[in-house]
Nucleic acid binder design. Structure first.
Length: 268
DNA sequence: GCGCAGGTAATCT
DNA sequence: AGATTACCTGCG
């Protein structure tokens, strides 16, 4: 058990921020599953959490997964005081951190996300894990590797309620499994080239590529525009968000905006 | 029972 | 380039 005293980290806010689909509330706290590992977490106070994992796993994986080295307070204090919406939104979601999620899982998850509600996305992802992921613990399955998913038939993938996205999923899994698109290698590229490489996948457009760039590759400059963000910009920024004010960390602002708008059912 | 959901690609003008 | 439309299916 690891106890951390840290500001700007709220498990509820992260779970509801829309960046992750297997980071969910449990009886006692929160649980996330990533890279074949399970992490149980508990919010002990606004400024402290406990993690149920070994020191090795913490240092070797979860520390970076939870993005604990990034100073979010500095991003929040960089918000100009005349941007009253963002000031408010950042206070509201000040515990959000942008996770470093497994690349392949992030890619497939956001391909699934198109025109689906968040609960429906989660249902499909769990079905895929159960269908072909390793069983990590009793009834708990890892997200499949590219090879595992690529070896599934179209019918099997269709059975996970993904509809017309099935061919996108299979095509992406095959491309990665065959080494045609080496996801890990893309880490070396700059933001623009990561974006272009992701757009090569069939079924990946601007929105999904930006989500993978932000939530997988941790490129904080990426600014995914989904319906919540578009509505918010239309309603509160006159249709144009001042991206230049947030150069290099607009993705963090996107998260504050999304969480604030969706939690308060703004826009629509 | 029924519209819609964290979009994308194809097919128009 | 910009606008329009079909698309699977579970959730509310």
């Amino acid at each position: 058990m690891i106890k951390l005293n840290i500001a700007n980290l709220n498990l509820f806010q992260i779970a509801e921020s829309g960046q992750c689909f297997r980071f969910n509330q449990t009886e006692h706290g929160y649980r996330t599953i990533a890279e074949g590992k399970i992490l149980d977490m508990c919010q002990e106070s606004p400024d402290s959490i406990t993690l149920n994992c070994s020191k090795e796993d913490y240092k070797g994986y979860w520390h970076d997964y939870l993005d604990l080295s990034t100073d979010y307070a500095s991003y929040i204090s960089a918000i100009p005081s005349n941007d009253s919406f963002m000031t408010e939104a950042a206070i509201y979601g000040s515990g959000i951190r942008i996770l470093r999620q497994p690349l392949f899982e992030t890619l497939i998850s956001f391909i699934i996300s198109q025109r689906k509600s968040i609960p429906a996305i989660k249902t499909s992802i769990e079905a895929i894990c159960r269908m072909c992921g390793n069983e990590i613990d009793e009834g708990i399955y890892a997200f499949p590797t590219p090879e595992q998913l690529a070896s599934c038939s179209m019918e099997e993938i269709l059975s996970c309620s993904v509809g017309y996205r099935a061919r996108y999923i299979l095509s992406a899994a095959r491309s990665v499994a065959q080494g045609k698109t080496p996801l890990e290698e893309l880490h070396k590229l700059d933001d623009d080239d990561v974006f272009k490489a992701l757009l090569e996948f069939d079924g990946v457009g601007v929105k999904v590529a930006n989500c993978v760039r932000l939530f997988g590759y941790h490129r904080l400059a990426a600014f995914p525009e989904d319906v919540w963000i578009i509505n918010t910009i239309n309603n509160y920024y006159g249709g144009k968000f001042p991206l230049d004010l947030y150069e290099g960390f607009a993705g963090v602002m996107q998260q504050y905006m999304f969480f604030y708008a969706r939690s308060n059912k703004l826009g629509k």
